[in-house]
Design a protein around this nucleic acid. Structure first.
Length: 377
DNA sequence: TCGAATGATTCGTC
DNA sequence: GACGAATCATTCGA
C-alpha cells in the first residue's frame, strides 16, 4: 500500500469517531472540560498506526459498510453539505467525510501529516528535482535552431539553405530550383513540427490542470501540500518533455535526410581549386613508383587541399587509372612536376647547406612508372 | 554547343 | 576494406 493510499485510508479511518463526538457540541465541551485533547491526538494517531498495517480492502470495507445505502436520504445529504449526485456515494461515507472536515483536530493533523510526508518520501525524491538540462535535448534544440526549424522564422530556413548550398561548394544564389525546393520542404517540416509541438503543449497544460484540480479536491480529505502538487506538476512536465524529445529527434532526422538529398554530391560536383590539384599532382608524380598514399598521407593531403580524405582517395583512384590508360598524354605533366620538384629540392638543399647540416635525400624527382606483375603501377 | 576534363559512384575482385 | 575499371554527371574552355 503506498503512502497516499494509507493517508486516504487514514482519513476514512477517522470516520470511526462516533457521530456524537462530531455532531454533538455538548459532547465536545464535556471532553474538553475533562482535559482530554491529548487523548484525542493519541486516539487519532493510534488509529493511523493501525491503518498503516491495514490492507486496502480492509480500509475500504471500513469506509463502505453494507448497511450504509439503506441509511441514505436526500434530507440527510443536504444536512451533511455533500453532494452525491452522479456518484451515489453511500451516506455513511459522506457522513464520515463531513465528520472529518469538521473535526477540530483536522488542521493540526493535516499539518503534521504533511510535515511527515515532506520529511520522508518527498525529501528523498526532492534530491532529483534540480535536474540539469538534458544535453540530448540541448543538442536537438541547437540543431533545430540552426536549421531554422525552431525559433523565429527567417524566410523559411533560407539561411540554412544558403549555408547548405555554400557547403556544397557553390554560390548560395545558384541552383535556385533546388534552393526553393529545399526551402519549401523545410517550411513543411517546420509547420508540422510547430503544429505537433503545440498539440503536445496543449495536452500537457490540460493534463496538468486536471491533475492539479484533482489534487486540490483530494487535499480536502487527505494531506497534500502545495509543494507536493508542484512536484507532481514537475513530474508531468518531465514526462511530456520526453515525448517532445522524440518529436525533436524525428524532426532532426527529417531535416538530415532533406539536407543529404539537397546536397547530393554528384549533382553538386565542383572542381578542386588549382592549388589543391597542384598539391595532389605533386604527391602523385613524386611517388609515381608507388602512388598509394597511406591513411596519414591522405589526411595530410586532405588538410592541405581543404577536401575530405574520401575525395583524396577518389582523386588518386581516378588519377592512377587515367594515367595508366594514357601515359603518353600525362608525360608532359609529369615532366612539369619533375622540374618543379627538382627546383624545390635544390632550394631545400641550398637552405640545408647554409645551415651546415647534411642534406636529407628525398625522392629526388620522378621515377619511371613501375608496374607490378598484377598490373598495378 | 560540343567534347574534353574531372569528381563521384557503382560493381566486381582480391 | 582497398583497389581497378566502367560509368555517370557536371564543369569548363574553345
Amino acid at each position: 500500500m503506498d503512502d497516499q493510499t494509507r493517508m486516504l485510508a487514514g482519513m476514512g479511518g477517522l470516520g470511526g469517531l462516533s457521530q456524537a463526538d462530531v455532531g454533538d457540541p455538548d459532547s465536545v465541551r464535556k471532553q474538553q472540560s475533562l482535559g482530554q485533547p491529548q487523548q484525542d491526538i493519541g486516539d487519532i494517531l493510534q488509529q493511523i498506526m493501525a491503518i498503516t498495517d491495514e490492507s486496502l480492502d480492509e480500509a475500504q470495507a471500513r469506509c463502505w459498510p453494507e448497511e450504509a445505502p439503506a441509511q441514505w436520504t436526500p434530507q440527510r445529504e443536504g444536512e451533511l453539505g455533500g453532494s452525491t449526485a452522479g456518484c451515489a456515494l453511500p451516506l455513511n461515507f459522506q457522513h464520515r467525510k463531513h465528520a472529518l472536515n469538521c473535526h477540530r483536530m483536522k488542521p493540526a493533523l493535516f499539518s503534521v501529516l504533511c510535515e511527515i510526508k515532506e520529511k520522508t518520501v518527498l525529501s528523498i525524491r526532492g534530491v532529483q528535482e534540480e535536474d540539469p538540462p538534458d544535453p540530448q535535448i540541448m543538442r536537438l534544440d541547437n540543431m533545430l535552431l540552426a536549421e531554422g526549424v525552431s525559433g523565429p522564422e527567417k524566410g523559411g530556413g533560407s539561411a540554412a539553405a544558403a549555408a547548405a548550398a555554400a557547403a556544397a561548394g557553390g554560390s548560395p544564389n545558384d541552383g535556385s530550383i533546388e534552393h526553393s525546393d529545399y526551402r519549401a520542404k523545410l517550411t513543411q517540416i517546420r509547420q508540422i513540427y510547430h503544429s505537433e509541438l503545440e498539440k503536445y503543449e496543449q495536452a500537457c497544460s490540460e493534463f496538468t490542470n486536471h491533475v492539479m484540480n484533482l489534487l486540490r479536491e483530494q487535499s480536502r480529505t487527505r494531506p497534500i501540500s502545495p509543494k507536493e502538487i508542484e512536484r507532481m506538476v514537475a513530474i508531468i512536465h518531465r514526462k511530456f518533455s520526453s515525448i517532445q524529445m522524440q518529436l525533436k529527434q524525428s524532426t532532426c532526422e527529417a531535416v538530415m535526410i532533406l539536407r543529404s538529398r539537397f546536397l547530393d554530391a554528384r549533382r553538386k560536383r565542383r572542381n578542386f581549386n588549382k592549388q589543391a590539384t597542384e598539391v595532389l599532382n605533386e604527391y602523385f608524380y613524386s611517388h609515381l613508383s608507388n602512388p598509394y598514399p597511406s591513411e596519414e598521407a591522405k589526411e595530410e593531403l586532405a588538410k592541405k587541399c581543404g577536401i575530405t580524405v574520401s575525395q583524396v582517395s577518389n582523386w588518386f583512384g581516378n588519377k592512377r587509372i587515367r594515367y595508366k590508360k594514357n601515359i603518353g598524354k600525362f608525360q608532359e605533366e609529369a615532366n612539369l612536376y619533375a622540374v618543379k620538384t627538382a627546383v624545390d629540392a635544390a632550394n631545400v638543399s641550398a637552405q640545408a647547406s647554409q645551415a651546415n647540416s647534411p642534406a636529407t635525400p628525398n625522392s629526388g624527382g620522378y621515377p619511371a612508372p613501375c608496374y607490378t606483375p598484377d598490373g598495378r603501377l
